[in-house]
Amino acid sequence: MGEFLRRIRLPLLFAGLLLLTLILMLSDRSEAPGQGTGESWLPNALLEVAAPIQGALSRPVDWLGETWARYVALVELHDENAELRERIAGLEEENLQFREALVAGGQLQRIAQMREGFEVPLLPAQVVGQDVSSWFHAILLDRGRQSGVLSGMPVVSDLGLAGVVSATTPGAARAMLLLDRRSAADAIVQRSRARGIVRGTGTGELEFVFQVRGDDVVPGDVVISSGVGGVYPRGLRLGTVAEVQAERSELLHTARVEPAVDFGRLEQVFVLLRRGPTMDLLYGGDGDLPAPAAPDAEVSSR
């Protein structure tokens, strides 16, 4: 009996591990469509350990990059400076004209009221790690549940929408990027208000699937989130249409969209500390913000 058990020990271990991985995959898939909630202790512990190490490792590289950018790569700085000054002057002029127009239309007060209603606290977070698998796109953030971050909260950068938090631990969080094949956001074209879905293709670009109604999507159009779907707030920049693919026989057309966010160079992002109703339903909870830990939460408001 002992000899028999020793002989089947390896096949048993092999089969047991395969079965375990299969069960884990099935349970992870059923937790949320494409996203783990990160509630089990072992993945949490691993994330919790990995985040500070990755943060510590990324600091010297950050420092090197910053030093290079500040002190070494100063070629053409003078020209760039002049160009930027010119642009600022232009933008100030444009801003003034807009304000004048808004005041004239009596809209300024209404917009201020609307912003108050829409106000979402933003939590700055550092990107300390990135997914290195070829097929999926995720980042590791140095803020977690202690700072009020919950699964399902949108993640933005100064350039636009970056993704959504997919797992959290007390001190870290993992966010699935918009580039990931499982990502999708209801979107509109800012110019023509054509509506569709922006999806990650996994290749570093986005795909905008829209219903054909004349030529209402052209290259150069800016695509923003529509707010429909209850995941992302309205008005976040997603990208710019690079090419409309001609599939005239179909009702739905697709366009290639260049992301607004440079995902390869994400260093700091902001977590919107309020998740949409769909994510609330998906992950449970009443949507109230958990109290952020006092010293840790540098919350800014938009």
């Binding site: 390896l10 271990l13 993945p43 691993l46 994330l47 997914d131 999926f136």
Partner: peptide
Amino acid sequence: GLVAAAVFGFSADVLSGTLLGQQAM
């Protein structure tokens, strides 16, 4: 080796966006 491989795959799953167990398998 089998246990080590499962641990490496499981850790890769946690650090990346794959389903838990996908890379472990």
